[in-house]
Design a protein around this nucleic acid. Structure first.
Lengths: 245, 245
DNA sequence: GCCGACAAATTGCCTGACAACTTGCCAAGC
DNA sequence: GCTTGGCAAGTTGTCAGGCAATTTGTCGGC
């Protein structure tokens, strides 16, 4: 008589909804565990057969998940040595998925600061490029996002999505693939700083005018004004975030 | 009597040396094919069984390779739909491996321009941060790289490696993980611009003094001077590269 | 004390089969 | 004619077990 199985299947239950396959769930599980520091760099995780069994998945699915981690520079595995967590410096932290793992738990404040600094460097310059290169569609996308921001405020999720969409449209308007690739990372920075502001219930400022100034300068094709307006926007955001912490 | 096998095993032969496993070779093969445009976005590649057989690898190994591509945003695969190449905008173009694939063949000039622009934006700002935050080890790393650049010139591969090491050390000196993560991407930009200059045999300038100025300003802890020196360096590199093309 | 060979442990790869999931067709109904 | 529902087929997704390849650590010899 076979034993019944009172155990929950840990992975199969958790977070299997959003079109994410089984290996995706495993990757998410391991990825968050690593990024959050539960498995420190240099540590070696348990062997494939044991770990796969522990998570109640086949070895093949487990391996595919590990390939994903390897592809993002989180781990490295060699025969007989096992698979080890690599030092933080070799992680692809700007990868959208890794970013999502990092923000799944309460994110490290130092890292949020780093992202914000990157944003402060890139966005004013991006605004300059955007003003020089934008086309009709770019302007439309930015104006649409701006309108949505006006309608729903930053208090609603739709409003915050519109905020992200605005910055995304701006980066796309640079017509520079390298900067467009930074969109996800910078979007994360935008999201989390507004998130902090939101929490402390300190929303002293209406963000729309600042964004509108940037938008207008870009539409007008004035690089210097666009860059300056964006710098002002970022500086204000920095002030607000500082006072919220 | 079994047939002999006159066929070369295409993947197993090619580029299997550098510690790269079989799945790595397959990923490289597919990755370069996609990044170089041989398989255009929107196209769907042949089914797993057929393609795996064509490459003479097992389906499991082939799938692990595809997982890597998926992790880097190059493809997306769903049951019954097959696996399709995603639009360029969703590729993780700044991922070191993707960058390597992009530069495996003759790289797209427009993309090199994009990377260079990103470098021009990030590096002066990074120099500013570095001047404010560098510690003894950072300075040592930069000085070492500089010394190596002096010894072997940019005409040798060791010299170019030292150049990359210099810029890498500079970015690390920012103590900003987000910027450190850009090191690989910016390193690629540095590499390829000097590569162009090298080819056209136009090496009008000794790069060492410019680098030394940056290094000194950072060691002195002068952010403005560091930023200015780096901007000058990048501008000169831009001039040289322009005249080389 | 250094160097080389060997053995064990772990990942790497293979085969074959079945399950799950979509898509696209096709028919029925409005 | 258009929409809607179900149905079937095709492709990826997952499973199981076994063997090969590779590297590390150790043990013996020099």
């Amino acid at each position: 008589m076979p034993l019944d199985e009172p155990d929950d299947k840990p992975i199969k239950r958790s977070a299997r909804g959003s079109g994410r396959r089984l290996r995706g769930a495993v990757a998410h599980y391991l990825g968050t565990a690593i990024v959050s520091g539960q498995i420190a760099p240099g540590e070696k995780l348990t062997g494939e057969i044991a770990n796969a069994e522990a998570l109640d998945v086949s070895r093949g699915a487990y391996r595919e998940a590990v390939q994903v981690l390897t592809a993002k520079g989180l781990v490295e595995s060699r025969p007989k040595a096992g698979t080890r967590v690599l030092p933080r410096s070799s992680w692809n932290i700007l990868d959208p998925t890794v970013l999502a793992w990092a923000f799944a738990a309460e994110p490290d404040l130092g890292f949020v600061r780093d992202l914000f600094e990157l944003r402060a460097v890139v966005e004013p310059a991006a605004a300059r490029f955007a003003a020089a290169r934008r086309d009709k569609d770019d302007i439309k996308a930015m104006k649409d996002a701006l309108a949505k921001m006006r309608r729903h405020t930053l208090a609603t999720e739709t409003g915050r999505a519109a905020d992200r969409a605005f910055h995304d449209a701006l980066l796309r308007a640079t017509h520079n693939d390298a900067m467009i690739a930074l969109s996800a990372s910078i979007g994360a920075a935008v999201s989390w700083t507004t998130e902090f502001k939101q929490r402390s219930r300190a929303l002293p400022r209406d963000p729309v005018p600042d964004h509108a100034k940037v938008c207008d300068a870009i539409a007008a094709g004035d690089p210097e004004a666009a860059s300056a307006a964006m710098r002002a926007l970022v500086d204000l955001a920095l002030d607000d975030t500082r006072s919220a912490m």
